[in-house]
């Protein structure tokens, strides 16, 4: 856990080193967002109920640029623990997700979402099950709304 924190702090420090020429900082936020979702593994045929809980450590900065565009810098570290209910004999199947990402984007001030695909690890299985962290940017309040989706792909085109 300590290593995770260190990695996240390093990512945040990276973003903090942004150039400050001809841009005005509108938002500087570091927070931890709790996450929870229930998924059916889309890579398997049989219906499953997998409950995920965890959080995303988020560091976000928004800049207004001289040309009216926005610049969004975001670093996040997402950790999730999941378990599958309804297994025979009370067996619990565990799942884990732990991955980070960083983005530095410049764009017209319109809403959009950044999707980060994160491998779901289950002991003894190796499918393409991914949890997708959806970070929806709202140009009105400059915030990021976080959500989770399930996918049976890794985000490649």
């Amino acid at each position: 856990m300590k290593n995770i924190r260190h990695a996240f702090i390093a990512a945040a420090a990276l973003l903090a080193a942004a150039p400050a020429v001809a841009q005005v900082m509108l938002l500087d936020l570091t927070t931890s967002v709790p996450l929870a979702a229930t998924f059916d593994n889309p890579c398997t045929v049989e219906p499953e109920v997998i409950v995920f809980q965890g959080s995303a450590d988020l560091s976000q900065r928004v800049w207004l640029l001289a040309d009216g565009n926005l610049r969004l810098q975001v670093a996040e570290r997402t950790t999730l623990d999941g378990y599958k209910t309804g297994t025979l004999l009370g067996q619990v199947t565990k799942y884990t997700v732990a991955a980070d990402s960083a983005k530095d984007l410049e764009f017209d001030p319109v809403g959009f979402s950044i999707l980060q695909f994160k491998k779901v690890v289950r002991e003894g299985a190796n499918d393409n099950f991914h949890a997708v962290l959806v970070m929806a940017f709202d140009p009105q309040n400059l915030g990021l709304q976080l959500g989770l989706e399930a996918a049976c792909d890794n985000g490649m085109p």
Partner: peptide, 8 residues
């Protein structure tokens, strides 16, 4: 690099 964006 891999980027995935969803637009309205």
């Amino acid at each position: 690099t891999l980027n995935v964006f969803r637009f309205g």
